[in-house]
Every structure is written in structure tokens, then in C-alpha cells.
């Protein structure tokens, strides 16, 4: 058993160590680790150079391989390390990208994991709701299943470059902040409740949006089941039109 610190660099370092020691035991983050009776546990110390060698090796096979690993790492699934490690081993032993091989169970598991992450990121590109604050900047909170903030960065920077904004992943306590052309990922400490700091006209626009949302639906065709299927209830907490 390899125990790593939960960072991407740590995970790749663990992979490096596994190959170096020719010991392909499970990799698990420290926060999930429970000591088993007969297990030998090795604590892996994150090392940038070791991680870089693994990512360079994957990149040499194909950019897609590294991308699969990165996306899977963002997954909020308990067995993501297993999926990633199995995928890396399978790919490295084939010596080429197997990403087209949907029929391979190991590759299929990794691609399915990637898809879950990518899908939630796509969903939240739509479901994100900003509120304008008194200083003219915009605030949005989300509680995604997967850690998709990094995947929103490029999209939101391209789209909202004219305004300062902050997206808060309230579940993980991290925030993506865009200010004066600069994009950064922060931990929780700087984020406070935004509600009492609304810009003067913020509530008026929220109200207008709700009015629009109600009136655009055809009354004779109400279909809450379908609505929930596309827009699962777990996202409603931060949706202006549902509050």
C-alpha cells in the first residue's frame, strides 16, 4: 500500500515509486487510509522531479493519456486512484495510447470516470449563477461532486474577462478568483458569505430572471420529472430560479 498526500504530484510520485520498487500495490490518499492488519504501508513524499518524469512519460505516449489521468484525478470517487493506476499500468505496458479501445475494461473505466468529471463541468458551465457584489465583482457558489473548478477556469476567463469574479467550491473549500486579468486558485480562508454584500440592483435582476423563467414554460406541458432529469435537484441550492 502506498499512501500519498492527496495531491496530483503526490499521486504521480507514488506511481514512480511503484515502478521503481516493482511493487504494484494500491495507492491511497492519507485521508482515507486505515491501517490494515497485515498490510505494509509506505508513505510517499511528493517529489516534483519524480512526478515530472511520470507525466513526461505519459505525455510522450500521447497528450490524451495525460489528460485522462488529470481528469480522473479530479473525480470525487473513492476508487479513483485504483482506476488511474490500472489505466497507467495498462497503457504503459502497451507502450501506446489505448484510448480508442472502449472495449477494454480498464480503459473503459478510466474513460467513464473522465466522462463523469467532464460532464459535471459542462453542466456547471450552464448552472453556475453569479451574484453581483457591492464592489462590482461577481460571486458564485457551487458544491460539485467532482473537483471541477480547474475545468471552469478557461471557459470563465474567456467569457467573463470584463468583470472580476470568484467561484467558490463550498464543498471542498477552494475558490477560483479572477481579478485584473489574473486567475488564481485559493483555499477557503478569504471567502465569506456574499448575501449581505449584494450590489443595490442585484435582487431586482434575480427577480427578473425568475419571472422570465416562470413565463417561458408552457403551462399545459409542465413536466417536473423531465426538468429534474436534466437539472438534478442537488444543484438547486445555488440556482437563482429555484430559490
Amino acid at each position: 500500500m502506498f499512501i500519498y498526500d492527496g495531491s496530483f504530484e503526490g499521486l504521480l510520485t507514488a506511481v514512480f515509486e511503484a515502478y521503481r520498487l516493482r511493487d504494484f500495490a494500491d495507492i491511497t490518499p492519507a485521508e482515507n487510509y486505515q491501517k490494515g492488519l497485515f498490510e505494509e504501508a509506505r508513505r510517499v513524499v511528493s517529489a516534483a522531479d519524480k512526478a515530472a518524469r511520470v507525466s513526461a512519460r505519459l505525455l510522450a505516449l500521447s497528450g490524451d493519456v495525460l489528460r485522462v489521468v488529470q481528469y480522473c484525478f479530479l473525480a470525487g470517487l473513492a476508487d479513483k486512484e485504483k482506476i488511474i493506476f490500472a489505466y497507467i499500468r495498462r497503457t504503459l505496458s502497451a507502450g501506446r495510447s489505448l484510448n480508442g479501445n472502449y472495449a477494454d475494461p480498464v480503459v473503459a473505466a478510466a474513460l467513464a470516470c473522465l466522462k463523469k468529471v467532464a460532464r459535471e463541468a459542462e453542466r456547471l458551465k450552464g448552472l453556475l449563477r453569479f451574484q453581483e457584489l457591492r464592489d462590482g465583482s461577481f460571486y458564485a457558489a457551487i458544491e460539485p461532486e467532482h473537483c471541477i473548478l480547474p475545468l471552469l477556469a478557461g471557459h470563465c476567463r474567456a467569457r467573463f474577462s470584463g468583470q472580476g469574479w470568484l467561484i467558490h467550491d463550498a464543498r471542498r473549500g477552494i475558490a477560483l478568483v479572477y481579478q485584473d486579468g489574473d486567475l488564481q486558485l485559493f483555499d477557503n480562508s478569504a471567502v465569506h458569505n456574499a448575501r449581505d454584500k449584494h450590489a443595490a440592483h442585484e435582487l431586482a435582476y434575480q427577480e427578473l430572471w425568475k419571472i422570465f423563467h416562470q413565463n417561458i414554460a408552457i403551462a399545459g406541458r409542465k413536466n417536473p420529472k423531465l426538468q429534474k432529469q436534466f437539472m438534478p435537484v442537488r444543484y438547486w441550492k445555488y440556482l437563482t430560479e429555484k430559490n
Binding site: L127, A217, R221, L226, Q227, M231
Partner: peptide, 9 residues
């Protein structure tokens, strides 16, 4: 991108 779904789905 879909931003929301109306009550008729």
C-alpha cells in the same frame, strides 16, 4: 450550453 431547464423540461 443549457443554462437551465424550464418547468416544461
Amino acid at each position: 450550453i443549457c443554462h437551465s431547464w424550464s418547468d416544461d423540461g
